[in-house]
Simulated scan of single mutants.
Amino acid sequence: MSMTSEFKEFIAKGNVLDLAVAVVIGAAFGKIVTAFVDKIIMPPIGLLIGGVDFSKWAIILKDATVNAAGEAVPAVAIGIGEFLNTLIQFLIIAAAVFVVVKAINRMQPKKVEAPAAPSEEVLLLREIRDSVKK
């Protein structure tokens, strides 16, 4: 089998196509969650805390300067607000994935395990019981 035909067979399998669809939908869902957190959740929280814009909330370690060549040197800062936004986005996505997995697990039929075969001792005891009954 040639490499090309083998690759076509691999791509044509349902699992690969399902995975591709999941990646595209996951990327779109990530953008939705980002917009939800940045535009809907964080502004009211910032207003309640005292008008803080979380996207710009940072600890400045070194202020922005201009070097000898006249080029701007950006500030060195720890972006706490961006980190909080990302953390909240992660928690929302994790909760959504948890709910989806839980729903899928509920829809799958429960597997009934066959009883285990009796041990050698039980078989021997049954044999003795049966011989005593005779």
Rank of each mutant, 00 (worst) to 15 (best):
T34F: 09
K110H: 09
I32H: 07
F29W: 14
E113F: 05
I25V: 15
P44E: 03
I41Y: 00
L19G: 15
G26Q: 01
R129T: 13
A72G: 08
F7R: 12
P44R: 01
A75K: 07
G30E: 07
R106C: 06
R129W: 11
S55Q: 10
A28L: 15
E120L: 06
K102M: 13
L47I: 05
V112N: 05
V23L: 13
G46I: 02
K134Q: 08
V132E: 08
S55I: 04
L91P: 03
E127R: 10
G51E: 03
A72N: 09
L124D: 11
I104G: 11
V33Y: 07
D130Y: 03
V100S: 05
M42N: 02
G50K: 03
D18H: 10
L123F: 07
E82G: 15
I128W: 05
I92C: 05
F10K: 08
I104H: 12
K102R: 15
V52W: 05
I40L: 13
G50R: 02
P115N: 08
P109I: 06
G70V: 00
G70Q: 00
F83C: 08
S131A: 10
I78L: 14
L48D: 00
T86W: 08
D63V: 02
E127C: 03
I11L: 15
F10T: 11
W57P: 01
E82N: 14
L19F: 15
L87C: 06
D63N: 13
A68C: 00
M1E: 08
E71P: 00
T34W: 09
A58M: 05
A114G: 06
I40K: 10
S55V: 04
P74V: 02
K56D: 11
K39D: 15
E121M: 06
A12V: 02
P43H: 10
E113N: 09
G26F: 06
I25D: 04
I88V: 14
P43C: 10
A77P: 00
A69T: 02
K56Q: 12
V52A: 11
P115G: 09
I32C: 12
V37C: 07
D38S: 14
V76F: 06
P44N: 04
V37P: 07
R106K: 15
K133L: 07
F7N: 07
L17F: 13
I45Y: 00
R126S: 08
N85W: 01
A22R: 10
L91Q: 04
V97Q: 04
V132Y: 10
D38T: 11
I11N: 09
P74A: 04
L125Q: 11
M107L: 15
A75T: 09
S55K: 14
I59F: 11
T34R: 13
I32N: 06
D53A: 03
L19N: 15
D18R: 12
F90N: 11
N105M: 13
I128Q: 09
L17C: 04
K102G: 11
V23K: 11
D18Y: 13
K56F: 03
V21A: 14
